[in-house]
């Protein structure tokens, strides 16, 4: 038996502690230990991105991180987006533009889009495509996903500068 390691991870703003085997994948820690089943597992080759979470603010594939590596760090999962029961604007965008069908890739797509808009509030279509190129969707053909991200970006710009419509977009 391998030695268990005590980890303390801040998940969606809450400190969570557990003794884990070193080999435990972060995605399994989130899903099995914490019951946060929004992060999905769609492959085993770091290809599909259904498990995407934010690790210290950066979008990463939680199937390719060990839970022990997240010790002392911050993780945001799909369940951690939005506040006070309200959807985040990225989630709202995916609802408004139906950027999904079966819903399985959706949490990862939303997280990748969220990370993009944090860094680049006004992305071009090409930038959106690149940002979600580590996430596979088998249902939609991506068009509605791209529209969803654009919708969210637009909402973000409206929210940020309502009184300064002429402000230059960065």
């Amino acid at each position: 038996m391998t030695q268990a390691h005590h980890v303390v991870v801040e998940v969606n703003g809450v400190k969570r502690e557990a003794d884990v085997e070193p080999r435990l994948l972060l995605v399994h820690f989130l899903r099995e230990n914490l019951g946060l089943t929004g992060s999905h597992i769609g492959c085993d080759t770091t290809s599909c991105g259904a498990c995407t979470v934010l690790l210290d603010g950066k979008a990463v594939k939680s199937c390719t991180v060990l839970a022990v590596q997240a010790d002392g760090r911050k993780v945001t999962t799909i369940e951690g987006l939005g506040a006070d029961g309200k959807l985040d604007r990225v989630q709202e965008g995916f609802v408004a533009k139906h950027g999904l069908q079966c819903g399985f890739c959706t949490p990862g797509m939303v997280i990748s889009a969220y990370a993009l808009l944090q860094e680049n509030p006004d992305p071009t279509e090409e930038e959106i495509k690149t940002a979600i190129s580590g996430n596979i969707c088998r249902c939609t053909g991506y068009e509605s996903i791209i529209e969803s991200v654009k919708h969210a970006a637009k909402a973000g710009r409206r929210r940020k500068a309502p009184s300064r419509p002429s402000r230059r977009r960065s």
């Binding site: 770091t46 390719t64 990748s112 940002a131």
Partner: peptide, 9 residues
């Protein structure tokens, strides 16, 4: 290299 998510790590 790979994709943007992989490149973050």
């Amino acid at each position: 290299i790979a994709d943007p998510l992989v490149r973050n790590l």
